[in-house]
Amino acid sequence: MITGTVIIATEICKGCELCIASCPQNSLALSSSINRKGYRYAELVLDNCTGCINCALVCPDSAITVYRQAKPAKRASSPSLSAQTA
């Protein structure tokens, strides 16, 4: 199972909720507290983030950074295989 997480710059966030609507996992919600600009900000509320980056893509303020569990190291592919996939 791939897992991921997001870091949200809560002081940049304006609470537009676009990320929340775009999250296929429903991992995000608005905070109950407000930031210095007076906005409720987006935060991760569930443990099921897959790191799909959907939320970050639609964030107008580029407030979201996304991390994902590193895939198992790739096996060195044989030359013939890479030629096929090239």
Partner: peptide
């Protein structure tokens, strides 16, 4: 969530 073991994707 621990991000140490994760890679930055966006």
């Amino acid at each position: 969530t621990k991000i140490d073991s994760m890679e930055l994707v966006y």
